[in-house]
């Protein structure tokens, strides 16, 4: 034991989150990886803001690389879906115990379309 108190900023244990945005035709793909919790949810929020989405007709939020999704991140998804509709269709790609399972458990999968793969999501929004 080093006796280091559990406080202070710059916590080295803070989990990382990466959000990458790309454009495929009229579809904006937001690929998220790592941890989406109350610390990192603002990164996702800004990537899904109307300004970031721009003129895209649909947004595919790909959570395939996410290993932890807390309610803070789910709230961002629900709010973005509501804010962008009906002009922009937002769908989610998720298929793991850490993502699609909790999204289904709290009923978000009933509000926002959920696809197992990015290809399926892209096919749906460009159909």
């Amino acid at each position: 034991m080093t006796g280091q108190p559990v406080q202070g900023s710059g916590n080295p244990a803070a989990a990382s989150c990466a959000v990458e945005q790309s454009q495929i035709g009229a579809v904006s793909v937001v690929a998220v990886s790592g941890t989406v919790d109350m610390l990192t949810a603002p990164q996702l929020e800004s990537a899904l803001s109307p300004a970031a989405v721009g003129t895209a007709q649909a947004v595919v939020v790909d959570l395939s690389g996410v290993d932890f999704l807390a309610s803070a991140g789910m709230g961002v998804l629900v709010a973005a879906h509501a804010d962008l509709a009906p002009a922009v269709r937002l769908v989610i790609v998720a298929d793991s115990p850490t993502t699609s399972r909790p999204l289904k458990l709290v009923g978000i999968a009933d509000l926002i379309e959920l696809f197992a793969t990015r290809d399926e999501a892209l096919a749906a929004v460009t159909a």
């Binding site: 406080q7 916590n11 244990a13 803070a14 989990a15 919790d37 109350m38 610390l39």
Partner: peptide
């Protein structure tokens, strides 16, 4: 006696 801030919620979760 963990100070209740988001950073600590994350580190306690990991531990």
């Amino acid at each position: 006696d963990v100070v209740a801030i988001p950073e600590h919620a994350a580190s306690v979760r990991q531990e």
